[in-house]
Write a protein that binds this DNA or RNA. Structure first.
Lengths: 351, 351
DNA sequence: TTTAGCACTCGATGATTGCGAGTGCTAAAC
DNA sequence: GTTTAGCACTCGCAATCATCGAGTGCTAAA
């Protein structure tokens, strides 16, 4: 049995009300706040149907109804009204993100904090997946004998570096021969195709004895590989402590522990975005989220882009009772601004 | 009126008991757990005195007593028994900290997480104050026209870098003339004495026209200055959610907000360590801590050293009802291990 | 100075009650 | 057939009350 028009209206109204009040929604309250042209008794019948169909839940007999995961799903898929930012809100976001303008990490941090402040929920910004980007430069700069700063420059203008230790009899000249051999050999090769073996074979061209090479190769390799590490900027976790959902500390602790598990959330969001490459945003609700401790939450995530290959994610984690349409409009807007800024950074970098 | 022997004993016992139970301590419970050779009535009289003198508080008539800030202060200053780590505990700590061995940031992160796990409270590790250390090297590496990686090497082997943008008509040669002029001019000068003016006058020696110089100076200056930024690694905040002290979320939120205020806690700890240079550890209890939101907590901090000039801090934040002596022994031990590791890093660096 | 004894305090617990918000059902109205 | 007024019923919640007992403070005797 599909939902008829009136059921949809009622479900929508219930979700809207529950989102703003956090209290189970009663038939009477509904007809007062929205002007359905029917009585509370009719609404009650409809609500009872909706419960049977799995869209609503009743915390206990004689209480109002609360949306189930399925109810929220229906709501976000086809019921909610899309929200649009006011000009002022948009301007504010643009202003804040234009401050930190020439550095990826700074931009993402700012994006994350803005997103959290605007929505009032937990925000997330994840650095791009760089597997598809390629090595443009590899420099090894000797700080002092035995200590080298390896600088990796990737396409899309991303620069990462790493301080490593090598045998201290290597001279700067030998080092620079090695690094330029690797650079030449790997130029244009996507990170995902770079392995210890490819690095080694590239380094062969330096014409240095293996005994010298081997000591450096591994460090060069890990420096390159680490450029692909995802970094996560999470913001606003404390806000969750003010939500009635988490008014009991043990629930809060479960949530916080889950959020603090480094890599779990970002890995999940990452997967999500790979599975939904063409979607403009992704929503996961409650039990749909396969991370222990987050089943009382919803995710809204989206993907930002540098060119057509490089992509990272931003997202919001909030209670299931989230202001979905507002968050969607905010996150979409921020995504646009990030894309724009990144294009600009790229243009500045010549490429 | 000074505390006589028995009062001290009783106060000590009360703190010990309260630390482990988190419940107000009653006279009867006291004489059962500890064998004072007196009756509960006597203890009651003593407790009443101790309350009068400000060492104890009574949540309400007819409940047991709880230590006041003054009570804890007396306890840590002269009553508690010092705890020593078991060999196994020490070994475990040493093992964990020896894993990440050649990089300051990694060592401090590991130290922080170890400290939190061992104590069960919130831990803190702060990078060293580098004002007294001096510039050893300044390199500017052109990534591509207009984009430069500024690498700052300080005495004590600390390396920091920063990606900056400069006018794109500057050539690598000009850049390297500027950076080596600055390097030569500032070599050996402590960071605290470096200003935009000193940088500019050092750069003069590059013999390049001011019009070129000015564009780069500021970036060089900020790169150098930023090397002095304190970074903070905090761990285990979630553990606080399991303490009865913070079983109500609004208290927890206040605490978490305070902890998240970037720089507040680290600044406080920093100040503390400057004021108590020769102390082997510092304790601040409740109201003694002048940070809003942390007045239900205690701090135990200590200072680690690289040589005799460079020093940073590690610390523990817990409830006032903290296991002081245990934490002190743990933090002291970890401090020693850090010092040792840092000496080793320095030796490796030939510094 | 210590302590046994006892009255007193007060939070915590649990039972009881009433209230009221909310439902589901029925039967009448549309 | 659908809607709705009416009403009985459910159940959480808050208030009230009594009880219990852990704990104190005080007094008077040891």
């Amino acid at each position: 049995m599909p939902l008829d028009q009136r059921k949809k209206q009622i479900l929508q109204a219930i979700v809207d009300d529950y989102v703003s009040t956090a209290e189970p929604v009663a038939s009477n309250a509904l007809i007062q706040r929205h002007d359905f042209r029917v009585s509370s008794a009719t609404v009650r019948n409809e609500m009872s149907d909706l419960e049977q169909m799995g869209y609503l839940e009743q915390p206990h007999t004689s209480s109002g109804r609360v949306p189930s995961d399925k109810g929220y799903r229906e709501y976000v898929d086809s019921l909610m009204k899309v929200d649009t930012l006011t000009d002022a809100e948009g301007e504010e976001i643009r202003r804040r993100l234009s401050e930190s303008f020439d550095e990826l990490a700074g931009l993402l941090k700012k994006a994350s904090s803005t997103l959290s402040e605007q929505t009032g929920y937990v925000s997330l910004a994840i650095t791009p997946r760089l597997r598809k980007s390629y090595l443009k430069q590899l420099k090894m700069m000797m700080i002092e004998p035995g200590k080298v700063l390896v600088v990796v420059v990737l396409s899309a203008g991303i620069v990462k570096d790493r301080l490593v230790r090598i045998p201290d009899y290597l001279t700067p000249e030998q080092l620079s021969r090695i690094s330029s051999a690797i650079e030449v050999g790997l130029y244009g090769k996507p990170l995902e195709e770079i392995s210890l073996v490819t690095v080694a074979s590239a380094a062969k061209d330096s014409q240095l004895p293996d005994s010298l090479l081997n000591q450096v190769l591994y460090e060069a390799y890990t420096a390159i590989k680490q450029a692909d590490n995802l970094e996560v900027y999470m913001d606003g976790t404390n806000r969750m402590l003010s939500l009635p959902e988490f008014s009991n500390v043990s629930k809060a602790r479960t949530l916080f522990d889950a959020l603090a598990m480094d890599g779990i959330v970002s890995g999940y969001v990452n997967e999500l975005s790979m599975e939904n490459e063409k979607a403009s945003y992704m929503i996961r609700i409650g039990q749909e989220i396969s991370i222990g401790g987050l089943s009382d939450c919803s995710f809204i995530t989206t993907t930002y882009n540098v060119g057509d290959k490089i992509a990272g994610n931003i997202g919001v984690i909030g209670p299931k009772r989230m202001e979905y349409s507002k968050v969607i409009s905010q996150i979409s807007f921020i995504r646009q601004v990030i894309n724009h800024q990144l294009e600009e950074i790229k243009a500045l970098n010549g490429g």
